[in-house]
Simulated scan of single mutants.
Amino acid sequence: MSNSTLRAWSWIHKWSSLVCTVFMLLLCLTGLPLIYHHEIGHLLGNEIEAPAVSPEQAQQRANLDTVIAAGKARYPDKVMMYMSQDAEEPAFWFLTMGAHANDEKFVSLAVDARTGKYVAEPPIEGGGFMSIMFHLHVDLFAGLWGKLFLGFMGLLLVVAIVSGVVLYAPFMRKLDFGAVRHGRTARLKWLDLHNLLGIVTLVWALVVGCTGVINTLADVLLKVWQATEIAEMTKPYQGQPIPTTLASMETSVKRAESAEPGMKVGFIAFPGTPFATPHHYGVYMHGDQALTSRLYKPVLVDATNAQITDRRNLPWYLTALLVSQPLHFGDYGGAGMQFLWALLDVATIIVLGSGLYLWVKRGRAAQKAEKEARRAAGLRAPALVREGDAR
């Protein structure tokens, strides 16, 4: 590699790293507790516990219309937006309700999936510790523009990683792989450690960086999907009045399950929400394996008569989004993968912190060298003047 090419890559690595480092440190620090959000939620008392029921009741599943009625009894002035069931907590149906189908000030409540009775309102939002960590990590409390800004920082991280790899190869020709030179200056030791941890966390940082960028585009990708495939699927309903009386949810879900054998209901979107249409329920089915449980297949059900009108696989970009979300936080492999993700997160914090340290030390060293050069020039100037005077 020529010196000019090496200098170009060095410039790219330097500035892409400097611009994104502070924000990447913020994302790593806030992402660490989010890896263990369920465990921390239990410690903080934010997770609800399933009520004790008899062995017979434990095997039952409440009629979905009864589940919805429990929510409406709690909030008669609100409409249903979504209902979902977590694979890790099958004892609950979680209902999302608002003043209208796109209400941002929604409420969330848990209903016993076995008895159909209201249980509690999970304290998801409200300024708690995990809520603050989530918003700092996702959108900096700035909505869509905050997400897009963090996505751009993620792109700069990917550029910094790639340029770092390009620079690492010629640098390590003079050293053994992973060598950390002791007995020299602190800056040199931190440089070696920075390079070593950077290579060790390379694949993980690329995965988390790329999936993070994809996640920031979630709102945009959903709008693209709504404007293309959803619009195509609902053409026959254009011009028809919005239904005021909705069909049975129990019947709708049973028909969706019959149409997709071997799949389970992940969540249900009600008419008018972004994941449905003004005339349909969006019943989202998923598999029961670690990977397929994250891949959804929408089944559109006519909200007036519970008849299936369309079902198709999600477009590739939404599939990439759904796969990237759990991969970003290490949700695929249980406690072992969570621990690995946390360990690599800490290592990345050290890489980012050491990068800032090296940049600051290098700047100070340059300033010191410049001052010494000026001092030396000042000492030489009188001698030259005296020599001229002697002549």
Rank of each mutant, 00 (worst) to 15 (best):
A366C: 01
L197W: 10
H137F: 03
I242K: 14
M263L: 15
R74Q: 11
R380S: 08
L222S: 07
A365Q: 06
Q226D: 04
K174L: 07
G209M: 11
R311F: 00
R294I: 03
T66D: 12
W225Q: 11
R184D: 12
C210W: 00
G262F: 10
G353V: 14
A227F: 13
D310Y: 11
E89Y: 05
Q85T: 04
R311V: 06
Y82R: 03
G116E: 01
F339M: 14
D288K: 10
G198V: 03
P236H: 13
H137E: 13
I349T: 05
E125S: 14
V385T: 04
A381M: 12
G198P: 14
W15A: 08
Q60T: 05
L206E: 02
Q60R: 11
L109W: 00
A303D: 05
H279M: 14
P55T: 02
P271S: 01
D65H: 08
L155W: 00
S293M: 04
V53C: 12
V360D: 07
R255G: 08
M133H: 03
M1V: 01
G183A: 01
G154M: 14
N46F: 12
K297F: 08
T277P: 01
N63D: 15
E104D: 05
T304R: 09
K72G: 15
W93D: 07
R255S: 05
G98R: 14
P326K: 02
A373I: 13
A99D: 13
M233V: 13
A342C: 02
W316S: 05
L34R: 04
R380D: 09
R173V: 03
